[in-house]
Design a protein around this nucleic acid. Structure first.
Lengths: 228, 228
DNA sequence: GTCTCCGCTAAGCGTTTGCTTATCGAAGCG
DNA sequence: CGCTTCGATAAGCAAACGCTTAGCGGAGAC
């Protein structure tokens, strides 16, 4: 067999189990990692990485700190991951895949454009709010990935944007929506959804689902065609 | 005079010159720094810091790198600044003050709520787009400041949010706007404006002012009262 | 001429960083 | 038993980090 070939990455060995085919919704980050990653040590490392990255940012977080939180020696992290960068890439990949699964499931259900866009916005916002910490890392430490990694993650982001665009375009074509520029409107709507990360608080007045509903109302009134 | 007292910070020595009282609008970041900072060396350091912080984030940026970009020795930075953290704090303060000046000037002009909110949104978005790099640092490296510094910067942010809230509340009271929850609506609108940082590109199809106009349209149709 | 100030630099201190090396012990297997 | 595999560790390396120290050189004051 191939010598000199470096070991496979965690991302390449992820359990191919999505929220679709395995009983019930994902409840939280630990639950999501349980479904996708077999080794308990690797799960602990990734949970610790999310915690460290979210608190201090990728570059300020030390691998020693992550190892300590995972109750392992500093070197044990490198038994499972090639580098600190791969830690971040694994986290971002897991979260990007999950959000894409959530939103595309919402977009698959039939309905009028307004109904479909409502579901897509609601799920997108609620997902970001519910997994606030990990989605924060996935979004705001994205630029610390290398070019090849960024390119792979961008595929998920582009696919999600496409789902939004399809709903908006369908509504414009059947006259229920008005948008002067679909491209700008699309990025404005998506970035509005993501920006819930900047203020949402788990212990706050509203649940993730309630915030999602509210944002869906905002987006629909933003897009509804003039009754004139 | 007081011995043992550490030297004053750059922020404490800023020129008290706002865009109001000194001829014309600020054209770009260098122009803004020229108006507020006397020493050319300090201006070069701050411009270099903005560049480094925006490219790699606060923690990954090295003071040696910043010094090299400013054409100074590494130690020269510490002649003017106590620490790397003070570099960030100075940048964030300058940008936060500037944005607050811009938005509050827009809010001061009289008009119906819809007209005032349109101006406020337009200026807020256009300011972020026009100073994209520095505003990016100001917003996304905010968490690297210490608690006391964050508290001071939050005063500007809260004041800006208040300006938005006043417009929205006035529109709800005179019946021209509809908002089920003014608090959530306010943070959604403000974070929508800020999120232009995530996609705006200086060389793109639209100018900062055009994007501001488009966002103002979006926000107004989001808030306008139902004609039913 | 001498003294003081001030912006600036060369050199380097102490610490922390990401990551490697050599090794261990338990488990699986013929 | 002998051998391999594998998760994990103790120890440490080379590099980079933020920041300090001691001192230089030109300008202004008297």
């Amino acid at each position: 067999m191939g010598l000199g070939i470096k070991k496979r990455t965690i991302v390449e060995r992820l359990t191919a189990e999505s929220s679709m085919n395995s009983g019930g919704v994902v409840r939280n980050l630990a639950d999501l990692f349980n479904r996708r990653i077999e080794s308990p040590s690797i799960r602990r490392i990734l949970l610790a990485a999310v915690d460290s990255f979210s608190k201090t940012g990728f570059h300020a977080a030390s691998t020693r700190d992550i190892a300590r939180k995972a109750k392992l020696s500093p070197a044990a992290v490198y038994v499972h991951f090639h580098s600190k960068e791969e830690l971040l890439y694994t986290v971002v990949t897991l979260m990007s895949e999950w959000v894409f699964d959530q939103v595309s499931a919402a977009a698959r259900e039939r309905g009028r454009p307004a109904e479909r866009l409502r579901r897509v916005v609601q799920v997108h916002v609620a997902s970001h709010a519910a997994m606030r910490t990990a989605m924060f890392v996935s979004n705001f430490e994205f630029h610390s990935l290398n070019a090849a990694q960024r390119k792979k993650i961008l595929r998920y982001r582009d696919a999600i944007e496409k789902l939004f665009e399809d709903c908006i375009r369908a509504g414009c074509e059947d006259g229920s929506f008005h948008a002067a520029d679909i491209g700008i409107t699309k990025v404005a709507v998506v970035s509005l959804c993501v920006s819930v990360l900047n203020w949402f608080s788990p212990g706050g007045r509203l649940s993730p689902e309630q915030v999602g509903d509210y944002y869906a109302d905002l987006v629909l009134s933003m897009l509804r065609a003039d009754p004139t």
